[in-house]
Design a protein around this nucleic acid. Structure first.
Length: 848
DNA sequence: CAGTGAGCGAGCTTCCGCTTGACTT
């Protein structure tokens, strides 16, 4: 009897083969195999023209979805169909979650098997788990499939109904969705907080103290003055920068802090209280997708995308378990392996007295276990034979997993209060010590730190043994100034953490959410931080005002609750979708109404959380953000510079822009001979320099673009003149006596002679290039063009395989041709610099 | 080429969640 087993991921096949009977054929669906049509092109002909065709869902007939096979999936289906013909039964072994159940159902719909169909589920690929699964087949759970379909349709209805509203009201190509719009709003809200933030300054004192007859100096900070608490950061209102409860605290400024210091210099210092307490710490749970992305971002500086790429490689090569999971559960095998590793590495005393498992409670959709080293023996990072990113990430996963089975860390905290009395005033200082009584899991893993040894030291803070009533000696006191800081912008790590916490998005999508919001122009990455754009503000404002559900993370949790009901058979999909989409309060009616009511001009106007904009209005427009102000009946408008972020905006800065616009461009200097003013301006094609003003008799002043990498602010008269000089004569060609020039064209800097152009190399500068170099480039070009077709360079025969190796130029850039294989050249290579050695290396990499 | 923000209008843009390898010069 032959069985066809279908799983989701091809990488599972190899392992699964070990535990299934030999006559079983295993293949994979590679994820979903059918979906709603993505665009008009994918909609089947017979539905075109229907009002709902673009949605791919028949909103007029029970929300019947149209399913199509995406382009790339046809091949998979063909192969599966062929294999099914030779099988006596079909076993569907897709993941045990909502999406997996749906994939199984789509498979039966598409393959139309006439042999028995069985549904098989397992959570780990071990012998026992597979045996167990083979003995407990079940049927496809149609309720669960319905829940997935409802989820899919809700997302489609929301996304494809609301996005077009944004195209009409704000800008074409924008998008809205249950997940992305919430993510964008998080960032916009944080940016608003930053705009409203008013910083505050306060002072305290730091005293350097030591015991008598002991040289060790420790610091203590002033906390109370005559029994009243000293103001610190949390006492200030974020939006006003003022104290929340001024009567409850003492606020020191520059002057009063210095005075107090002088006063206390003659004081008596005495320990008034010593408190000790011990605390135990538990290790963090094993990694799930979101925590792995966060920690890799913090410790290794990886983006979410990079982390997932590296994890995928580790998974494929059998180093770790599946990397897209929301369960921190460890299998019995994993716990054993981790405990063995702890014993080996750190000894019995570091082992927790019993197996520890965090994933016991039910996660949202538990199809996989935690991300951990694969197998029943955890290879040590050093012996795994990994390099680079893969080593770093495996090391992180290994340590985190091991730590879960390690003993608790025990810390001892000492809090000491010291009183200083002078001139009838009592100042209270505090200091604290921290000692690791037993490091426990700290030995392997400290969250947020990449070096456990260094982190261990940071965890400790030494304090000499002090007794109540003991006198101490003061060595110096200094006033310290502090400033309150605005809330930090999101990073990839903190955004993923927030999304995960609110149940928005799935492990397989965290990384792509970040790309989506960037691609739509809602967010720009600035180093590690994610900065929302002005467009993000406009879109979020529109959604908050008119379609509040969509930007509320509760929408997802409410949806999940309904989907759970559908999955339990307590709610009908059609009822749920009708309620959401149809009727007076439904989405359709709401969007239709807003299409009439929202004024595009008003939608593009930003309602920034700034007080008194002094009549200045901020808009997003076709060419980016701009401002408008009415002055003396005249409307002045000007762009906001590209580099500005929303939270950079202050009324003062906007006034400056308006003033600059009123005064017109300022020249950077004058032409040394003619005396004409020189301007650096910004145009449609980027920054440029201009000689002279635009007047009636000088309609086309001389202009020249800045070269790549030049900064407008750094251009002086000398540089401007050299730019205006282009194309620049370099001298005469020794053979033809014709002039050779250097200039900049559409495809970059070039030299030209007698109608023949040659591009400059990256290392050449068009401002400095000399005649000799130009002749050299022209000569190379001449040789090249005499050669046939698109060959840039012949490298000769491959020393091992004998076939010819050439560097070619193609439609998508330069590539290496080797027999029938083509390898495109990585961006950082100059085709001219490619040698046989480099080519061989690239060929070898490709073969791998 | 060169600071804009008005309007004309065919056909297009867009969602979330599973999953990798196949492109083309």
């Amino acid at each position: 009897m032959k069985s066809l087993v279908i799983v989701e991921s091809p990488t599972k096949i190899k392992t699964l083969k070990k535990y299934l009977p030999a006559e079983y054929v295993i293949d994979s669906s590679m994820g979903h195999i059918r979906d709603l049509p993505a665009n008009a092109k994918e909609v089947p002909k017979k539905f075109k023209g229907e009002e709902w065709a673009n949605l791919g869902v028949n909103t007029e007939k029970d929300f019947e979805p149209i399913y199509v096979i995406p382009r790339g999936k046809k091949k998979v289906i063909k192969r599966l169909k062929k294999e099914l013909k030779n099988s006596d039964e079909l076993i569907l072994a897709t993941d045990e979650d909502r999406e997996g159940e749906a994939i199984s159902w789509h498979l039966t719909e598409l393959l139309k098997p006439d042999v028995p169909v069985k549904r098989m589920v397992f959570r780990e690929i071990t012998e026992e788990a597979i045996k167990e699964a083979l003995n407990h087949f079940r049927d496809i759970d149609m309720n669960l499939v319905n829940a997935q379909e409802a989820r899919r349709i809700i997302d489609r209805l929301a996304g494809y109904t609301i996005s077009p509203l944004l195209w009409k009201k704000i800008a074409p190509g924008l998008s809205a969705g249950r997940v992305q719009s919430v993510a964008v709003r998080f960032m916009v809200e944080r940016e608003r907080e930053r705009m409203k933030f008013r910083s505050a300054r306060y002072w305290d004192l730091k005293a350097q103290l030591h015991k008598e007859n002991d040289e060790y100096i420790f610091d203590a900070d002033l906390t109370h003055l005559d029994g009243k608490r000293l103001a610190s950061g949390k006492d200030f209102d974020e939006h006003t920068g003022k104290l929340k409860k001024p009567k409850k605290v003492v606020l020191l400024d520059d002057k009063s802090a210095s005075e107090l210091r002088d006063n206390l210099d003659k004081a008596e210092w005495k320990v008034s209280e010593v408190k000790k307490n011990r605390k135990k710490r538990n290790p963090s749970p094993a990694f799930i997708t979101s925590t792995l992305q966060q920690e890799a971002n913090r410790k290794l500086n990886f983006s979410a995308k990079r982390t997932m790429g590296v994890a995928q490689k580790l998974y494929e090569n059998g180093y770790i378990t599946y990397m897209r999971t929301d369960s921190a559960r460890l299998s019995g095998q994993a716990i054993n392996a981790a405990r063995n590793a702890v014993k080996d590495e750190y000894g019995e005393e570091y082992l927790f007295d019993r197996p520890r498992n965090y994933g016991g409670q039910k996660a949202a959709q538990e199809a996989h276990e935690a991300i951990r080293p694969a197998g029943s023996y955890f290879r040590k990072p050093e012996e795994a034979g990994l390099r680079g990113d893969q080593f770093k990430l495996y090391d992180l996963i290994w340590k985190r997993t091991i730590a879960t089975q390690m003993a608790k860390a025990e810390l001892e905290f000492t809090n000491v209060t010291i009183e200083a009395k002078a001139n009838g005033k009592v100042a209270e200082f505090r200091t604290s010590g921290k000692r690791i009584v037993f490091p426990g899991f700290f030995r392997a893993y400290v969250e947020g730190s990449d070096d456990p040894d260094a982190a261990l030291e940071n965890q400790e803070k030494f304090l000499p043994e002090l007794k109540e009533g003991e006198e101490v000696v003061e060595e110096g006191i200094e006033p310290i100034s502090h400033e309150t800081k605005p809330p930090a912008r999101y990073t990839e790590a903190t955004l993923v953490k927030e999304l995960e916490k609110r149940g928005v998005g799935r492990p397989s999508t965290y990384a792509s959410i970040i790309s989506t919001v960037q691609n739509r122009g809602y967010v720009e990455a600035e180093g590690k931080t994610l900065v929302p754009t002005f467009t993000a503000f406009a879109v979020t404002e529109l959604l908050e005002k008119n379609l509040h559900d969509l930007v509320d993370s509760d929408f997802t949790s409410e949806m999940e609750a309904k989907l759970d009901k559908i999955a339990r058979g307590e709610l009908n999909t059609n009822d749920y979708l009708s309620e959401y989409y149809k009727g007076e309060k439904g989405l359709k009616a709401k969007v239709d109404e807003q299409e009439d009511e929202i004024d595009p001009k008003e939608a593009r106007h930003l309602d920034l959380p700034l007080e008194n904009l002094n009549g200045i209005k901020v808009f997003v427009g076709r060419y980016g953000p701009y401002i408008k102000k009415e002055m003396n009946g005249e409307e002045l408008s000007t762009s906001i510079p590209d580099s500005w972020k929303p939270s950079d905006i202050t009324v003062e800065k906007l006034e400056e822009l308006i003033k600059a616009e009123q005064e017109g461009p300022k020249s950077i200097g004058e032409h040394p001979e003619t005396g004409d003013p020189i301007f650096v301006l910004n145009g449609r094609y980027g920054p440029y320099v201009q000689l002279g003003e635009v007047t009636e008799d000088n309609k086309k002043p001389e202009r020249a673009s800045l070269l790549k990498g030049m900064k407008p602010g750094e251009v002086d008269v000398d540089l401007a003149l050299r730019l205006l000089e282009l194309p620049r004569p370099l001298g005469k060609h020794p053979e033809t006596d014709k002039v050779v020039r250097a200039g900049v064209g559409r495809y970059g800097p070039f030299v030209v002679h007698d109608g023949t152009f040659a591009s400059l190399k990256k290392s050449d500068s068009v401002l400095d290039v000399e005649l000799d170099r130009a002749l050299e480039l022209l000569e190379q070009k001449k040789n090249k063009s005499s050669r046939k077709s698109n060959v840039i360079k012949e490298l000769g025969d491959h020393p091992e395989e004998g076939k010819k190796v050439r560097v070619m130029t193609g439609r998508y850039g330069p590539y290496i041709k080797f027999g029938k294989t083509n390898i495109s050249l990585p961006d950082d290579f100059d085709p001219e610099d490619v040698t046989m050695d480099i080519a061989m290396q690239l060929i070898a990499e490709k073969a791998k």
